[in-house]
């Protein structure tokens, strides 16, 4: 009985991961690929880890699996947020049927340095911060 449950959980987890892979191939633009990926992969990994815990039946394995799952669930949105933002800033196109782009009002979609974008709205510090960033940029 337990064995059947473990096998079912393994198949469920693997199918969510397979669906994420089909999604990454099928979705029309980067942003939708990412929003498909994050969810399916986290859920799939959750099922695989649950199967692992049921299979080994040890408290040590269970706590490590929980820690790994929490780590993945915390970092997956962060990394997709980072890539999405970097992609938007570097001008990756949205799908042609996207209905509205309100972030365009903030960035105006033209090549512009990160520092200009970030510090344009708070005048008190903008000058020296911009200068400082430029300096580090040159050194880099």
């Amino acid at each position: 009985m337990m064995e059947i449950l473990i096998a079912a959980l393994l198949i469920l987890g693997a199918s969510f991961m397979l669906i994420a892979a089909i999604g990454i191939l099928k979705m029309p633009d980067l942003y939708m690929r990412m929003s498909v990926n994050t969810k399916s992969v986290t859920l799939g990994m959750g099922f695989l880890l649950l199967a692992l815990v049921l299979h080994f039946h040890e408290i040590g394995v269970a706590s490590r699996a929980l820690a790994t799952l929490v780590f993945i669930a915390m970092t997956a949105p962060i990394s997709s947020h980072l890539i999405g933002r970097a992609a938007y800033l570097s001008g990756v196109e949205l799908w042609s049927e996207t209905r509205r782009d309100e972030l365009g009002d903030l960035y105006q979609r033209r090549p512009m340095s990160m520092e200009q974008v970030l510090f344009s709205e708070n005048p008190p510090h903008s000058m020296d911060l911009e200068q400082e960033e430029k300096d580090t940029e040159d050194n880099f």
Partner: peptide, 19 residues
């Protein structure tokens, strides 16, 4: 909130305004 939105229905949080 941003992480929660990224993990739920078809949404992906991209950016927070400077303020």
């Amino acid at each position: 909130l941003a992480n929660l939105l990224t993990m739920t229905p078809g949404t992906l949080s991209l950016e927070v305004s400077p303020g």
